[in-house]
Design a protein around this nucleic acid. Structure first.
Length: 353
DNA sequence: AAGGCGGGGAG
DNA sequence: CTCCCAGCCTT
């Protein structure tokens, strides 16, 4: 048996033992009932959907009733679920079914997918669950299960990653009992293979799951890349005097790293030589640019350029300022330091040894 | 406080 | 193709 067939058989067996079969839309499964439930479940959890589904079905028992109802009443029955564009799409689609499909829900995948608000996955779910047609589905739960089991790298929002997941979904879908398999995949993702702390010990495919075997459940599927924060740059001056001391500077009480001890800072277009001349009245004997470091704040990313500077003369030329001190690096590391500054000092200390 | 959820529409 | 959005919910 191929890995994908083995996978499907295990999912089916698990579904037979542990799947839910008592949900309202699992009774009297018609395309209409599956459709409404799938749209509701796209945005809301099962427990919340149940009463909405019951009320909706009581008022709009089929696509004709929905098509004939005024939009306002449909929206009223959707009120509290959010994403109201979907209620409008439901209504539009019902009218299309009434007017262009003679009131019969289409049984062709392309025709179902052409209805507003129904994409490939929802179309596949309707026709597989209600009609037993062999179509793969790929909602958020299924994406997570497949990405973990088959070790699919990358964020599923990327088109190539998504294409790979569809390919796997297609390959794993069995010829028999597609409805039970698709339902099982959704149940698996919703109950065991959850985003956080999945219950791998209870999973029917744990012994062949790449994520589980490699302990990478938290890395798969890869999360959406956080939106790129604005980047700023700064120059930190690590200035050592003839005694090996480093010049520390206390930051202003407010703002970034307020009140913490740090290194003297300058804009990145400042030349270190120029800065030393202007602020210390001496020319450095040695200037070396260290590798840049990056630090991320909640609202921006900071690129830190580090200049390692040696001055030969005694520190007596520093103007008297309470917010500046010469410190042995060991002592400086005891001060309250921002994390990236602490790292820089640690590296300077290691390098000088 | 941030990110996820399917599909649709804009750029 | 790659964002960005809708609204509510969980973490």
């Amino acid at each position: 048996m191929s890995p994908s067939q083995d996978f499907a058989q295990r999912v089916l067996h698990w579904r037979d033992e542990h799947g839910r079969t008592d949900l309202p839309w699992q009774q009297r499964r018609t395309p209409y009932r599956v459709w409404i439930s799938e749209i509701m479940l796209q945005q809301t959890q099962v427990a919340v959907v149940i009463p909405y589904f019951e009320r909706f079905m009581a008022r709009f028992p089929n696509q004709i009733a929905l098509a004939d109802a005024p939009l306002d009443e449909v929206l009223a029955h959707w009120s509290g679920l959010g994403y109201y564009a979907r209620a409008r799409n439901l209504h539009r689609a019902a009218r299309l079914i009434r007017d262009q499909h003679h009131g019969c829900f289409p049984s062709d995948l392309a025709a179902v997918q052409a209805l507003p608000g129904i994409g490939r996955s929802t179309a596949g779910a309707i026709l597989s669950l209600a009609c037993g047609q062999r179509h793969p589905i790929l909602d958020g739960n299924v994406k997570r299960v497949l990405a973990r089991r088959f070790g699919v790298e990358g964020w599923p929002g990327k088109s190539d990653v998504l294409a790979r997941l569809w390919e796997l979904a297609e390959r794993c879908t069995p010829d028999e009992r597609v409805d039970a398999y698709n339902q099982g995949m959704m149940d698996l993702g919703a109950t065991l293979c959850t985003r956080h702390r999945p219950a791998c010990q209870d999973c029917p495919v744990r012994q062949s799951c790449i994520a589980c075997l490699q302990g990478r459940q938290s890395e798969l599927p890869a999360p959406k890349p956080s939106k790129t924060l604005p980047t700023r740059a700064t120059l930190m001056l690590a200035i050592r005097n003839g005694d090996g001391e480093i010049l520390m500077e206390q930051r202003p009480p407010t703002g970034i790293w307020g009140g913490l001890w740090s290194l003297p800072e300058a804009t990145t277009d400042t030349s270190p030589e120029q800065w030393c001349q202007a602020h210390l009245g001496v020319a450095p004997s040695e200037v070396e640019m260290l590798p840049q470091r990056r630090h991320t704040f909640s609202h921006y990313r900071l690129t830190i350029h580090v200049a390692a500077i040696k001055i030969a003369t005694a520190p007596c030329l520093v103007e008297e300022r309470a917010d500046r001190r010469w410190e042995q690096v060991t002592n400086a590391r005891q001060l309250g330091l921002p994390t990236p500054i602490g790292r820089i000092l640690a590296e300077l200390q290691n390098d000088s040894h």
